[in-house]
Design a protein around this nucleic acid. Structure first.
Lengths: 200, 200
DNA sequence: CAGAGTACGTACCGATCGGTAACATTGTCA
DNA sequence: TGACAATGTTACCGATCGGTACGTACTCTG
């Protein structure tokens, strides 16, 4: 034990080939779409070779699944991050995420949610990409329901679904309309729905 | 003149090769995704050959654009159809479309909006598919604004964008969640937003 | 019936797709 | 020094991609 003194993953780019592939795949898949990106492009941009990819991942499909799991993790961080700033205030937590999303999604070049995009690129429910993405979305739906219950909404499950529609709408509309798109009203619409569900 | 006695486009399947290609491409592109479908699959399923495709369409990209124009046309019909049943009542017109959409989008196997899907599959704004789809969405946004103004909403443009978010959210969530998905609440959420914008 | 024009199919192209086999090279630890 | 794991190098596979050169069959017109 206590042998490895410092594998010191130098925070510059090199690192392990598998990591570089994973990061490069993340960027390319997200920005250009999954089907649009070939393995050749990934390895060349990552500065590695194809055998390295296939030593780390069984297939392209597995790499895609890994990308989506990474995406889900980042999403969860983004979604849960505001919780710390607003303890015991689910409404404020949700609105914090919503307002940040509204800003991002109304900027030019926004590419939406990688998980939502994956469901559309892989409609076949047997495909690993589809499955990982759907699982993540179901977790989000559950999370929203929990928050809406904590807000003492009259119809927490309906409110949660309404908010989910607005979120998903923002993800996709951000790509369609760019700067000044409909996502700009996301915050006020979520507030209206919450108010309509919590007022006396 | 008056020569052609009856080219009689027999309403069975055969007809012109170009038409068969167009119909088959519509179904395949919509159900399986555009990038997922090759020209070979289209022509073989249409019962024609590749040269027939390339005599009628300059390229696959042009066929895709044609598909999206067809889709836009069908969408407009669906969206405007309820208008006849509710003349001079924009709210009823909109809700009629919304309620039908909610039903379709909460059924299993729903594949969303072909135009929205196309924007996600082709994020590059130079691509014809992207352009056709975005144009259609901009027209929808304008149409919604007009309707919201006619409803005498306090903030017609904001309300229109809010409704647009709910619509787009239904398109994509329908694919993610299938039966019993969030789109089931679309009707009540649209009503809440309208009410919140039109009440005294 | 002749001939033109239209509509279509056969067979093929080069490029790229995801994926692999075999072997050389490197760095690390013992 | 020597063994091992990780990576690179090179060359290749069969399948599929979008796209085309060219020959053929039908039909309408004169």
């Amino acid at each position: 034990m206590r042998s490895k003194p410092a594998p010191v993953p130098t925070d510059e780019t090199p690192r392990r080939a598998a990591d570089r592939i994973r990061e490069t795949a993340f960027d390319l898949f997200y920005r250009e779409g999954i089907r649009a990106v070939g393995v050749e492009e990934i390895v060349s941009q990552a500065g590695v070779t194809k055998p390295s990819l296939y030593r780390a991942f069984e297939s392209k499909d597995e790499l895609i699944a890994a990308y989506l799991r990474d995406y889900d993790q980042r999403f969860c961080q983004r979604f849960e991050a505001p919780a710390a700033e607003h303890p015991d205030d689910p409404k404020a937590q949700l609105l914090a995420y919503v307002d940040r999303l509204a800003t991002r999604a109304s900027r030019d070049g926004y590419r939406g949610c990688g998980l939502t995009n994956a469901v559309i690129e892989y409609p076949d429910s047997d495909h690993p990409a589809h499955q990982v993405a759907v699982q993540s979305k179901q977790a989000l739906r559950e999370r929203l329901r929990t928050m809406c219950r904590a807000m003492h909404a009259r119809d927490p499950d309906d409110l949660a679904d309404g908010i989910l529609l607005l979120l998903e709408g923002s993800y996709v509309s951000g790509q369609t309309f760019g700067e000044g798109g409909p996502a700009r009203v996301l915050g006020s619409m979520v507030r209206r729905l919450i108010d309509a569900s919590t007022q006396a």
